[in-house]
Design a protein around this nucleic acid. Structure first.
Lengths: 188, 188
DNA sequence: CAGATACTATACCGAGCGGTATACTCTGCG
DNA sequence: CGCAGAGTATACCGCTCGGTATAGTATCTG
């Protein structure tokens, strides 16, 4: 494994465990077995390091999410796919998932929040588009696509973080339950 | 307003906006119009300042929560009371609610998380006790009181933070919807 | 081989942090 | 008054932080 990758993975684990603001660059470099100029050679700054971590993990996930939320006149199917995308992402990258999770709920004016915000927006886009298209087939959903997006993501994050904390599987049963509960919230 | 209170309120607004780790003691003192030794006179340390904020806001809420979750063989009523306790707490202290929220989801080894953890545990106790007692009346709930507590708190936080972000009211309609959706998740 | 380019280490910088030593002022009380 | 103690300000300390100047080495390319 090359230095660049080692630094990225070391930084990820430190940021996830202690937080971005509380982790020093020297700490990361020592643990990765390189010196500071090496890290600053690959990533221009501490912020640039975090940006590389976010983009490296979020970019591939976003492609999967776009595919999962492509509306085909079957909202139930779509919801299941979107939830599956999130849950398997959380399960495959538990450390990164924990990191982005804490960043999403960080104080609004913190650097952490500022850094993750564009990625949160990019996640909302395809999901909100899916709900907007579904409005045509379900009249009672009209004008609520933004609210549905928020609620869905909130529920997914609640389930995922709970499962991660208890080291429980995010399996088909849980997906069925979450989807069922969410649909019930929409149509009742 | 005396200096102690001014410092507490100033610190609360800074911690909520920028985060505990990212806020300097000097920043707080300047904004509060006092000097550092004054702050260190009232609170032994930066950590002690945060502890005073947490205890001053959480303590009264905990009393209300204990009362709301006293089980009287009517789980629906209890859920409504608990949700109402949280929602009105969030609405009356939006800044503090935002702060404790970000601390709950902070990295596990951060000082923020460490500081809020005992208060989170103290909140779970009465709620989990409520579910444990309800098991006697609802056989299909057996052995799930911890899971229910987590899910309920996750759902409440999702609703509350969403409402706070959109500056929407946490009114009776929302409480009904949330309670209904949660009960449906339990009994289906 | 020669030169450029990518990579790495030592040693350092200015700034800001949490916290404090010292000393002064104000207020209440005998 | 005279004294005690709470409260406040100035000025400072030691430390760690993010970031860099300098210089050296390895590797690739003509």
């Amino acid at each position: 494994m090359n230095n660049r990758t080692t630094i990225l993975e070391t930084a990820l684990s430190f940021f996830a465990a202690f937080g971005y603001e509380a982790t020093g660059t020297l700490e990361i470099c020592d643990a990765a077995g390189v010196s500071k100029p090496t890290m600053y050679h690959y990533f221009k700054s501490k912020r640039g390091l975090m940006e590389a971590i976010l983009s490296g993990n979020f970019q591939p996930f976003l492609e999967r999410l776009k595919e999962a939320s492509r509306y085909q006149h079957d909202l139930t199917l779509n919801l299941e796919r979107v939830m599956r995308a999130y849950f398997s992402f959380a399960q495959e990258n538990p450390v990164f998932y924990r990191l982005q999770f804490s960043m999403q709920y960080a104080p609004l004016k913190s650097e952490s929040y500022e850094l993750v915000l564009p990625w949160v927006k990019r996640q909302r886009e395809p999901i909100q588009a899916m709900f907007a298209q579904a409005e045509a087939d379900h009249g009672n959903m009209r004008g609520r696509s933004s609210g549905y997006t928020t609620t869905l993501l909130g529920m997914i994050n609640a389930y995922a973080s709970d499962a991660l904390a208890r080291e429980r599987e995010l399996d088909d049963e849980l997906i069925y339950q979450a989807r069922h509960q969410f649909m019930h919230g929409i149509f009742s």
